[in-house]
């Protein structure tokens, strides 16, 4: 399943910060019109001697696999959390 939400939390010293939920599914809906460019992508892939279906399959796999990725970084004063849900 593709990622639907992005959780971002930026905290300061002594506080965990307020989580910000970014609705990725709205982004996917906004990008949906780009599907009209698929014929161009198909032509480009064939010119580049790549199997377009394989390319789509790989990028779909990356999109699906990104779910669950989490990055946390903190120092004494700041802490950042990014999580793909």
């Amino acid at each position: 399943m593709i990622p639907l939400l992005l959780k971002v939390r930026i905290g300061g010293a002594g506080s965990r910060g307020v989580p910000l939920w970014v609705p990725l599914f709205l982004g996917w809906l906004l990008l949906l019109p780009l599907a009209l460019l698929l014929p161009l992508f198909l032509v480009g892939s064939l010119i580049g001697m790549l199997n377009p279906f394989r390319v789509l399959w790989v990028f779909w796999g990356i999109l699906n696999g990104a779910r669950g990725t989490s990055v946390e970084a903190a120092n004494g004063r700041h802490a950042v959390l990014i999580r793909i849900v």
Partner: peptide, 8 residues
């Protein structure tokens, strides 16, 4: 500093 990365 602390960094914690989790990659599926």
């Amino acid at each position: 500093a602390t960094v914690n990365v989790r990659v599926p």
